[in-house]
């Protein structure tokens, strides 16, 4: 189990944004930080990785302290065994794909290198520079490079945002396959509920810098309001919307839907 209790206030001019989060993550599974844009998901990932300094807090992994501001424990970033795939992928433009992969370690694990190239279908791209790759290809290279670090933790910051639906589906499968194969702990940022339900074993919903729900991904579908259910939009017609509620698909008139914004894949509230 990974436990964290972190406080941090980000200041930019007169604006400030506070994170006050107590959360736990399951090791050797896929955990997802779920929430809208600006909720604090990326900030939490950066605080966990040590890229941003906390104001106060604690991070414990199986009784090992990564961080404890009370006794001034701070495990340096590179000792946390984290591989991080950033939103912009962070591939080095001066190196080819192969050079990017080989840069990870002085003595690269050749067996793993060939395996990763094979699984992520990179053979044709090895001598290409990142700027000449599509978003999906860059994403695969970044994933491959992260896995070659042989990390204990794989942090993915909204890696599937800028990718079309078909490719996103394929990459979700890659992430699942890779996690099952190498058994690292994935903490992934996402604001797509379908994605969460597909890949996550554990979810931590964040809003305005605070945890609102955490546990099994299905908790995201529950709602405390009377006569209101939460569902995901699957398809939209002129007067009706096809919605997934729990495991059931139903088609309901638009008049039942509380929110005005029903884009495919988004969460909506339905009044009965």
């Amino acid at each position: 189990m990974m436990y964290c209790n972190l406080q941090k206030t980000y200041r930019s001019g007169k604006r400030s944004f506070s994170i006050d989060i107590e959360a736990s993550f399951k090791l050797n599974t896929i955990n997802v930080l779920y929430g809208n844009s600006g909720a604090g998901k990326t900030s939490l990932l950066r605080l966990l990785s040590g890229l941003d300094k906390v104001d106060s807090g604690l991070i414990i992994i199986n009784n090992n302290e990564w961080l404890n501001t009370k006794n001034k424990t701070f495990l340096p970033v590179h000792q946390r065994e984290i591989a991080y795939v950033f939103q912009d992928y962070g591939l080095f433009p001066n190196m080819t794909v192969l050079e990017n992969l080989e840069f990870v370690k002085k003595k690269i694990n050749k067996v793993l290198l060939n395996e990763v190239i094979d699984v992520l279908e990179l053979t044709q791209l090895l001598n290409t520079k990142p700027n000449n790759l599509s978003g999906g290809q860059q994403q695969r290279v970044a994933l491959a490079r992260a896995i070659l670090q042989e990390p204990q933790f794989l942090f993915l910051d909204e890696p599937l945002t800028a990718i079309d639906e078909t490719l996103r589906y394929k990459l979700q499968s890659y992430i699942l396959t890779l996690q099952q194969k190498y058994q690292f702990t994935v903490i992934m940022v996402s604001h797509n509920l379908q994605e969460v339900l597909k890949v996550a074993s554990h979810v931590c919903a964040i809003d305005n810098g605070k945890v609102t729900k955490q546990g099994d991904p299905k908790i995201l579908l529950s709602n405390n309001k009377e006569n209101v259910l939460t569902g995901i939009v699957l398809a939209m017609y002129e007067r009706e919307v096809n919605v997934l509620i729990g495991t059931q698909q139903i088609t309901i008139p638009k008049t039942y839907i509380l929110s005005q914004n029903y884009i495919i894949g988004t969460v909506i509230e339905i009044k009965f």
Partner: peptide
């Protein structure tokens, strides 16, 4: 340059010298 270049290299355990000479300056 995007911050992610330096941060990715730091997470790999690269020294500041390596980050400068292999990642930042060539770009």
């Amino acid at each position: 340059l995007p911050k992610s270049y330096t941060e990715t290299a730091r997470l790999m355990g690269k020294s500041t010298w390596m980050i400068l000479t292999k990642v930042l300056l060539p770009n």
